[in-house]
Simulated assay, not measured.
Amino acid sequence: MVGYTPEKETQLFASEQALAGAVSGAVSRALFQPFDVLKIRFQLQIEPLKRSETSKYWGITQATTSIIREEGVLALWKGHVPAQLLSVLYGTVQFVAFEVTTKLAWRVLPEDVYSDHKPLTHLLCGGMAGCASTLVIQPVDVMRTRLISQGKQKLYSSMINGMVTITRTEGVRGLYRGILPAMSQIAPQIGLQFSFYTLLRDLWKKLLHKNGEEILEIQGSAVCGSGAGLISKTLIYPLDVIKKRLQVQGFEEARSEFGSTRHYRGMRHCLFTIAKEEGIIKGFYKGLTPSLWKAALVSGSSFYVYEKICQLLEFRKKRDRICRSDDKI
């Protein structure tokens, strides 16, 4: 189970939890990066997502075909290096921070409060884990967004070249563009994700127990993780659109082939401009479909791989402890 559980016979070290988080992030990113590319292309498009002379993209199939035809199959993994680094860092910090904060909550709160209100506790702990992760990965996220959004005209040849160029032309502040909506988005999203995961896991156990079936712990982590990812992403999605729009400010030259561009003075201006020009639903939920596919698949696989790795590490520790006991005898 994700989160600190005092009744566990074997508790993992933070380094072991970090390893599990890093592996889960790397696996999920490698498998589902194309959904992220599609989502970002949709989010950054000013024109409506419908068939017209001005719209570059208007559907998942059309966009995928267009990207492959114009840029090659590997374009679906565009920005994969910074994205992979982002996922590894994010998975590591997110899960370790969550395990640490839930353990701290268990020590500070009365035992009945922690047990009876675990979803609420996980909501708050997940929010703090999300804030910690965002501060660490924001520069990589900005670089990933820009690499994905540039077309045939390359302003950045690599992640390192991009970071150096941004720092030189825009200052360190350029690497943290969109940090306010990012923090506003990630903290509640991760909090909700962990909270709904806990709720869905409890329902999963009760449902299987009620039917007299064996509880499928690890399989349940994939199902419940997917559900938690879908719910949390849908609730917080508009902030993700605003974040992506702000991250590509000052980058309009490389995006001219994709359609219109806009200059936003900040989070509030971006919010009102999108609402006025593109509409609340059509503007703030651009790219929602690939994003939900990605959220479900990535969240489900992340929880599954994380719990599987933790299970294997716990099994190894138990085996080593038994072997040491046998040696003493």
Rank of each mutant, 00 (worst) to 15 (best):
V2L: 12
Y4T: 06
P6V: 14
E9S: 13
T10F: 13
Q17P: 02
A20G: 09
S24W: 11
F35Q: 04
K50S: 06
T54I: 09
K56D: 03
Q62G: 02
T65M: 04
T65W: 02
I67H: 06
I67W: 03
V73L: 06
V81Y: 14
P82S: 08
P82K: 02
T92F: 10
V93A: 11
F98S: 06
T102V: 08
A105R: 03
W106Q: 09
V113T: 14
H117E: 11
L120M: 10
L120N: 05
L124N: 01
C125L: 06
G127F: 05
G130H: 07
C131V: 07
A132Y: 05
T169V: 03
V172S: 08
L175R: 03
I190P: 02
L192Q: 06
L200G: 10
W204D: 14
K206D: 15
E213M: 07
I218F: 12
Y237W: 13
L239E: 00
I242G: 00
K243D: 00
A254M: 02
H263K: 07
M267N: 00
M267C: 01
R268Q: 04
H269R: 01
E278G: 03
G279K: 03
K286W: 05
G287Q: 04
S291G: 15
K294N: 12
S299E: 09
S299N: 13
G300L: 07
V305K: 03
E307N: 14
I309V: 15
I309A: 09
C310N: 13
L313I: 10
E314W: 08
I322L: 15
S325N: 12
I329Q: 13
I329S: 14
